[in-house]
């Protein structure tokens, strides 16, 4: 396991770990109550983090290993 993959923990810790602070209705963001926004925010973050991991992951370098 290479170090860049440790970033995969971030969505788990960020989304679930900070949930107690996100379990509220206000402020509304993008028309959504805060908790729903929090879920949506981490979906987007998860995608961004995966993109970063993919880019720097040595497993994706070179030709596909069979």
């Amino acid at each position: 396991m290479n170090a860049i993959k440790l970033l995969l923990f971030v969505p788990f810790i960020g989304f679930l770990g900070l949930l107690p602070y996100a379990n509220k209705i206000e402020p509304y963001i993008l028309g959504m109550p805060f908790l729903l926004f929090w879920v949506a925010f981490w979906m987007v973050m998860a995608s961004i983090i995966l993109m970063i991991v993919y880019k720097f992951d040595p497993d994706n370098k070179g030709s596909e290993s069979e």
Binding site: M1, F15, W42, M43, A46
Partner: peptide, 14 residues
Amino acid sequence: VPAYIFLAYVLSYW
């Protein structure tokens, strides 16, 4: 529902 699904995808990468 969406919460476990997107986290499953994060896990899936590894």
